[in-house]
Amino acid sequence: MSAQTTLILLKPDCVSKGLCGEVLKRFESAGFVIRGMKMIQLTDEVLKDHYSHIADKPFFPEVANFMKSVPVIALALSGDNVIERVRTLLGPTDSRKADKGTIRGDYGGDMMVNVAHASDSPENAEAELKRFFKADEIFAR
C-alpha cells in the first residue's frame, strides 16, 4: 500500500442536506486522515479550470450553477491508497447506479447531485489539491 493525499469536494447537495458530518464520519471510520478542510464559494474561473474536460459541453452551465449554488467543503484526505479506496466508498459517479451502503448510493440523487467529487488519479489529486489549497493549508499528522 502507498500513502496518498487526495482532494474531496463535499458538493452543494451534501452541504445543504446537512450530510457533511456523516460523510466525514465514514471517511474517518475508514481510517483516512483529514489534513486540510475549508468551506469555499466556487467561482466560474475555478469551475472552468476544475471541469476543463467538460467546460465546452452544453450541460456545463448547469454543472457550474449547481456547484456555485451553495459553498462547498474542500478536504485534503490522506491514507493508504486513499484515491482508490475513497472512490470505492463513494460508489459510481452516477448515484442511481451506486449500491446502498456506498455514500452516493445512500445519499446521492443522480450524475451531478452525487454528494462529493473525488480525485481519480494521483496526478489529478496533485493538481486538484493545488487548485483548492495553498501549501500552508495542508497539515502533516
Rank of each mutant, 00 (worst) to 15 (best):
C20E: 08
G21I: 13
G21W: 14
G21N: 12
G21K: 04
E22F: 04
E22M: 12
V23Y: 07
L24W: 13
L24A: 03
L24Y: 12
K25H: 06
K25S: 10
K25M: 00
R26W: 03
F27G: 04
F27Q: 03
F27T: 10
F27Y: 14
F27R: 06
F27L: 15
F27P: 10
F27E: 03
E28Y: 01
E28Q: 13
S29I: 11
S29A: 14
S29H: 13
A30Y: 02
G31Y: 05
G31N: 04
G31K: 02
G31R: 04
F32S: 05
V33G: 00
V33R: 05
I34F: 12
R35K: 15
R35E: 04
G36F: 01
G36N: 05
G36Q: 04
G36L: 02
M37Y: 00
M37C: 11
M37K: 08
K38R: 04
K38D: 08
M39T: 13
I40Q: 01
I40S: 00
I40L: 12
L42W: 12
L42K: 07
L42I: 11
T43K: 14
T43H: 13
T43I: 15
D44S: 13
D44N: 14
D44L: 07
D44Q: 11
E45P: 02
E45D: 12
E45Q: 14
V46R: 09
V46F: 05
V46C: 04
V46P: 04
V46G: 01
L47N: 06
L47Y: 07
L47T: 13
L47F: 09
K48R: 14
K48Y: 11
K48N: 15
D49W: 05
H50A: 06
H50V: 04
H50E: 05
H50G: 06
H50L: 05
Y51F: 14
S52M: 00
S52E: 08
H53T: 14
H53G: 00
I54A: 04
I54E: 03
I54W: 09
I54P: 10
A55R: 09
A55N: 01
D56N: 14
D56Y: 00
K57Y: 10
P58I: 07
P58V: 11
P58D: 09
F59T: 10
F59M: 07
F59K: 03
F59G: 04
